[in-house]
């Protein structure tokens, strides 16, 4: 069955992409399966300089999900270009470079440095990380700020720009429309939901950062709803993400209006989940009367 999807800058052989922060730069998953099997890979956020991230504990389990407060730990864009992207170059898969920062200038710096890389196919503008104090989600919760940083990123970028949206807003559609208007080539949604757990013995939050981002199957209905709302309001393609664990979930996102998906937390539960989904997707599409991924996308347009 034809699982391919063509999106701006992303010629995906199938619609399955491990989400940013859940697969590093591919080295770990490459020990388990051939990364060329993936539609693409969204690599861990790059910032201009190295970031250690937040103190530990950074992880807490929740009902059907987890909280994380990693805090965009990465070695900085120069290191990533020199040491991580060459590793990914050996695989026949699309690379979506997640770009993060504390200021608008940070986003521009990372994009300008990655522009000349043959490995990066498109950018994923992370204006939705709940675990950093400046930038990140601050830019993603206000339509004007989101549009402004998108416009600046588009001016700097020599590759398509996808904007990753946060669900931690009153009206996600207004943000989606604003970044579309500003020239975004696509949307990725949703980033994690802001959450907290408290340790009953200590009376204090489990995470050293106090709050963290909720992911996993618990957030899937929120993500499906957000994709559905935005798909009805914008024309640019949407990559759906949030709580996907199986091929049926991929179909649900495609029916909501997504054109591809990212798989996040489930990689921690089952490191083979992406290839299992890819293997199972033809069966599920056939079961529900579809002939290809493109067929689902066409028939889901409203």
């Amino acid at each position: 069955m034809d699982l391919s999807v063509k999106l701006p800058g992303l010629d995906l052989k199938n619609p399955v992409i491990p989400a940013s922060g859940c697969a590093g730069y591919g080295r770990e998953l490459a020990q388990l399966y051939d990364l060329s099997r993936l539609g693409g890979i969204a690599i861990k956020s790059a910032t201009p300089k190295e970031r250690f991230g937040n103190p530990t504990p950074r992880i807490a389990e929740t009902p059907m999900g987890m909280l994380n407060a990693i805090g965009l730990q990465n070695h900085g864009v120069d290191y990533i270009i020199e040491n991580e992207l060459p590793f990914l170059a050996q695989y026949d898969t699309c690379v979506l470079a997640n770009v993060a920062g504390a200021t608008e200038e940070d986003y521009i710096e990372v994009i300008e440095k990655m522009n000349d890389s043959d490995v990066v196919d498109a950018y994923e503008l992370n204006i939705s990380c709940p675990n950093v104090r400046h930038g990140g989600i601050g830019l993603g919760t206000d339509p004007e700020l989101a549009a402004h940083v998108t416009r600046m990123a588009k001016e700097a970028a020599k590759k398509p720009v996808y904007v990753k949206l946060t669900p931690n807003v009153t009206n996600i559609v207004s943000i989606a429309k604003a970044v579309e208007e500003a020239g975004a080539d696509g949307l990725v949604m949703i980033n994690t939901l802001l959450g907290m757990r408290i340790d009953l013995r200590t009376g204090k939050p489990v995470l050293a950062n106090n709050t963290g981002g909720l992911s996993g199957p618990a957030i899937r209905p929120v993500a499906v709803r957000a994709v559905w709302q935005c798909a009805n309001a914008v024309k640019i393609p949407i990559i759906g993400v949030g709580g996907i664990t199986k091929a049926e979930d991929v179909l649900e996102f495609l029916l909501a209006g997504a054109s591809a998906v990212e798989v996040g937390a489930q990689n921690f539960v089952d490191p083979y989940v992406c290839v299992k989904i890819i293997d199972d997707l033809p069966r599920v599409l056939k079961q529900y009367g579809y002939t290809s991924v493109q067929d689902v996308i066409e028939r889901s347009k409203r």
Binding site: G21, C22, A23, G24, R27, E28, L29, Q31, K44, F52, G53, T56, P57, R58, I59, A60, M66, N68, I70, Q73, A265, N267, F268, P271
Partner: peptide, 21 residues
């Protein structure tokens, strides 16, 4: 506390003497 257990998620980092992770 870990999530992935294989080095991908950066959930369980500690600092080395030089400040690296």
């Amino acid at each position: 506390r870990m999530a992935c257990g294989m080095g991908a998620c950066m959930g369980c980092v500690v600092k080395d003497q030089e400040g690296g992770s």
